[in-house]
Design a protein around this nucleic acid. Structure first.
Length: 301
DNA sequence: GTCCTGTTAC
DNA sequence: GTAACGGGAC
């Protein structure tokens, strides 16, 4: 019998055996998937993997968990060193939130990462995806883990459309919950779904020729193109985001506070934009001004 | 919905 | 050159 989704309509199934067999052979050997990796180290990997490909996360994660293996070790580090270790992973607010997470877990949770979705959701920088990923991969809770890869796989294999429609992660969580095997392979099933989306069922140029799924609604419908309007492009060059990156580069490379003049050299083409970027870094708490009027990474010294 | 980075693929 | 990529906070 097909599983019943909350809206009451029958939902197509996905063969867990096919998916898991494929994952056994083709899944990447990523260090945060190894046995014995702690919940905190898995949480760190999930923070880093938000918006950032595995290849860039790997070296930073290895260095990071060796240096700060527990929440309390991370909390004891200054946030400036945490921002430096984050390097050019991007979206440095994540590094700040990760440090704040460590402080809260060390102080309020006995240095133990919470194991339930609701408690995890209350931590800074942890949203629905990360809360579920930690509960599932660190504590083997059979909760649906829905990232953009999973949403795309479900849209195609189950719903027969090219990609997820308007943002409705709650609906996708229900759909994945209905697909989830109810035994202890749920965490491997979720990892395999994400891996299929990352390696085979990719956004562009999906490799349908090597897909392990014998049943796919999108294939059976003849690969209909997306009806959604083309997504807005998110530029980088010339944006405030790039300017913020340049300013942080200067501060990361400096051992201590720098003058405003040194910082100004990081972006000279548009001084109003540079001022706006610096102001936003101060507002975000990533940069602080010293009593002498110098600028430093937050938590320096 | 808008804003946050930086790299890689094309 | 430029487009694609992606969770969370607001």
């Amino acid at each position: 019998m097909p599983d019943i989704v909350p809206c009451g309509s029958a939902q197509r199934e996905l063969d867990a055996g096919e998916l898991l067999s494929w994952f056994d052979v083709h899944g990447r050997d990523l260090p945060w998937r190894d046995a014995g990796v702690s919940a905190w180290q898995i949480l760190v990997s999930e923070f880093m993997l938000q918006q950032t490909p595995v290849s860039r996360v790997l070296p930073i994660w290895l260095e990071w968990v060796a240096r700060w293996p527990t929440p309390s070790a991370t909390a004891a580090a200054g946030s400036a060193d945490v921002l430096r270790a984050w390097g050019k992973l991007g979206y440095p607010r994540r590094a700040k939130w990760l440090h704040e997470c460590a402080v809260v877990i060390a102080a309020e949770h006995d240095d133990v990462v919470p194991d339930d979705v609701a408690t995890l959701l209350a931590l800074p920088g942890i949203g629905s995806y990360t809360a579920r990923a930690v509960a599932c991969f660190a504590y083997r809770r059979p909760v649906p883990v829905v990232d953009t890869n999973v949403r795309r796989v479900v849209a195609r294999a189950i719903d027969g459309v090219a990609g997820p429609g308007s943002p409705a992660p709650v609906r996708d969580e229900a759909a994945v919950a209905a697909l989830l095997p109810d035994d202890d392979v749920a965490p491997r099933f979720s990892a395999a779904l994400m891996e299929l989306g990352a390696l085979v069922c990719t956004a562009r140029n999906p490799k349908c020729g090597v897909c392990p799924l014998s049943s796919c609604a999108w294939r059976e419908a003849g690969y209909p193109a997306s009806k959604a309007p083309a997504r807005r492009v998110q530029r980088y060059a010339g944006t405030d985001r790039q300017v913020r990156g340049r300013l942080l580069d200067v501060l990361r490379e400096s051992d201590g506070p720098v003058t405003r003049a040194q910082l100004d050299l990081a972006w000279t083409s548009d001084t109003a934009q540079r001022d706006r970027a610096l102001d936003s870094l101060l507002v975000d708490g990533l940069v602080e001004q010293t009593s002498q009027g110098l600028f430093a990474l937050a938590g320096e010294g």
